[in-house]
Write a protein that binds this DNA or RNA. Structure first.
Lengths: 167, 167
DNA sequence: GGGCGCATGTAATGAGTTACATGATTGA
DNA sequence: TCAATCATGTAACTCATTACATGCGCCC
């Protein structure tokens, strides 16, 4: 549902074609989500069939024609409904890394610490990326803020665990 | 990979059958992960074929026979490798809820606030559940601590956003 | 006697990914 | 000329879920 919500939300602000949507999401929204191109095309076709968006072919002189999408009133209704559902529910995040943490004691302390130290740079990089994210229109800045908070809290936690393993 | 790591890690501590593993995960580890029964059975078969675990049939007087699994040396090696890989990498969490946040400004402030207020109880309940989680053996307590931190930080953030929408 | 718990699975479905296919343009 | 970018998709595959199937024992 979130991917549909995302695509509709973007199309609500501006008509776009598939490639453009996928590029935008993967370039400008990489700190919080992603969407592979085949998935984007698939979803756009599905939503067209559902009547949520309408396709407009814009002929290009040389490149393949662009299929520009525009949201319909039905799409706007679906967006409103999905948005409300999304805002009023809490969907817990999954931490793939916690599984390793659960079995930390299978390793000697020093080695456990070394491995966690190797985890640190990717986390720190993600935090930097979120901090460097350009200010965005509307409430998108809330997402950036949330990511920054979350990643900062994660880094703090990781450092604390590393410290505990160091004495 | 995390599910295999989880199953191997548990089997390393104690031989168990499929039903038992699935029940344990969904009862005692619900605050951080889950595993549906068919998935558990499927993975156990796969890992048996891979030689990571060995099956021992324990006949029951009345109920269906139990297929009790024991980790093999190859399984232990796989566990060690996956554990190290898991600990040294950072796998960013996905927040399904952030998509809604990104389009908060599509709603009147008061309504946005109301919907976020409806989100709060589930989050608070998750935090309570993590706080009430029984102390576990070994480093499992690290996972609980991590969840508590994360959820507390999430609740703080949510309350801040709600406050901002209230003035 | 009816539903729940134990214990195992299969089959169908779904969501998303990777790899592949096409073909023109632009820049090094 | 060779790679990258633009622009669209299809096909095969993976992973996990839901729904279904079986059958006994236990408790109310």
């Amino acid at each position: 549902m979130e991917r549909e919500l995302l695509l509709l939300g973007l199309l609500r602000q501006q008509d776009m074609h598939g490639y453009q949507l996928a590029e935008f999401i993967n370039r400008d929204l990489a700190y919080c989500t992603d969407l592979k191109k085949p998935t984007a095309y698939f979803l756009l076709n599905k939503m067209t069939e559902a009547g949520w968006i309408r396709r407009e072919i814009v002929e290009q002189s040389s490149r393949p024609d662009r299929q520009v999408y525009r949201i319909t009133p039905e799409g706007e209704a679906a967006f409103q409904q999905m948005l409300r559902a999304n805002l009023s529910s809490y969907d817990p995040a999954r931490f793939a890394n916690d599984v390793g943490l659960a079995f930390l004691d299978a390793l000697p302390r020093a080695e456990a610490r070394d491995h966690l130290l190797r985890r640190r740079p990717s986390l720190a990089a993600a935090l930097e990326q979120a901090r460097a994210a350009p200010a965005h229109s509307g409430s998108l800045h809330l997402v950036i803020e949330h990511q920054q908070r979350h990643l900062a809290s994660e880094l703090e936690w990781l450092d604390e665990v590393i410290t505990r393993l160091s004495d």
